[in-house]
Design a binder for these strands. Sequence first.
RNA 1: GGGGAGAUUCCAGAGUGGCCAAAUGGGACGGACUGUAACUCCGUUAGCGUAAGCUUUCGAAGGUUCGAAUCCUUCUCUCCCCA
Length: 407
Amino acid sequence: MDATAQVQLLKENVEIFLPDNALEEKLALAEKENRKLIIKLGFDPTAPDLHLGHAVVLKKLRQFQELGHTIVIIIGDFTARIGDPTGKNKSRPPLSSEQVKVNAQTYVNQLSKILDVSKCVIRYNSEWLGAMDMTAAISLLSQVTLAQIMQRTDFNNRFTSGLPISLHELVYPLLQGFDSSVIHADIEMGGTDQLFNCSMGRQMQESAGSTGQAVVCMPLLRGIDGSAKMSKSEGNIVGLTDHPNEMFGKIMSIPDALLPEYLHLTTDFSKSEKQELLDRLQQGENPMNIKKLVGLNVVTQYHSTDEAQQAQDFFQNQFQNKRFDEKEFITVSLVTLGLGISENLRLIDLCKGLKPEESRSNLKKLIEAGSVTVNGLKVTYAQSSLEPSSFPVKVRIGKRGFFEVLS
RNA sequence: GGGGAGAUUCCAGAGUGGCCAAAUGGGACGGACUGUAACUCCGUUAGCGUAAGCUUUCGAAGGUUCGAAUCCUUCUCUCCCCA
């Protein structure tokens, strides 16, 4: 691939380059010094569940990796004790070192779905941050002013709206920046929400007398509910390890308005394929069709073509087909639910057995609201009893709970 | 260090002795409609009980009272102003 083609590929979907011609500059540098670039990606081991939002960044990293550049993953085990304040207004509980190890391992496993982990360098930042003494720490702190730190939107918002900001949170960007300095990063990747932290790294490197890293930020993928950002705490994620059926279903449930964004950021389609699908949307084709194609594509990336196809079939049968009998049910027996078959097994008790995580009060409300059907018929009285002779019985609870109960 | 304000159910935010499991809005969930989209409408939103009702909940711990989210004491945390 020639240089221009490389740049074009690497620029696709990127939202922010800092400085503007960062990429060209760094690539030229690599060429001149006859070496590959060091690309940094930081990871906070408090939240090891990767989702499609992370994948946007990881896919870009893969492109760099495929061009031979070195990916350095920083496991922020030290900084996890502080907690990245990005978008947060509450402090997080500290993690034990065992928990950090477990999380790091899960994280790396998930990374391998996208990156060739064997070619990545993995470093823990406690290695240098933990060893730092007070003199070095103070000297680090002296490199940045309060006004600079307060430029960060998040701190600014919290400050102006009277919310607490602890001092240790202010230090977080510096430590993350110091990481860049230690590993001599050429480029730091992240979502646009990491812009501040990443540019701090650039500054730290420069004040340490070396060349500052370039910052490459990918757009933030919005959550499946259409809210600003996909994040676990919002409960709007598509996890990379989600079951194919679930993954497909989640894609189908995104608002139509999000479809172009998902098409661009989450799929593997080529530029021309993407354009073709966008054209079809524009021409008024039912967005559902395009959404299915996106769903198929995404599930294929993280599972397989077959599983993606099966997921689509499942979806069509389970949710689009109106015939109750033809749906798939999870088979359970009364015995495994710990329920004996008796003269008067009440519906509420059966539901509690099937959905133990729901409270009885809540299940009762669901039944009364008409969300429970027995053999396809709504039953709205929680105390209804089920005759022993009526088993096996098919019970649906809410949109997604399909059970066939054997006696 | 001194002075002031505040902490309410998932979130925001009312409530200043009984009518408070706590207004209202948001979110979430469920129902109708549908393409598990959007829009719209309706319902639910502490737990347990078939029910009457009972239990726990308004930063924490004590106290006053027949009765406390509301009053008092101590404590914890936060914000603002002055130094």
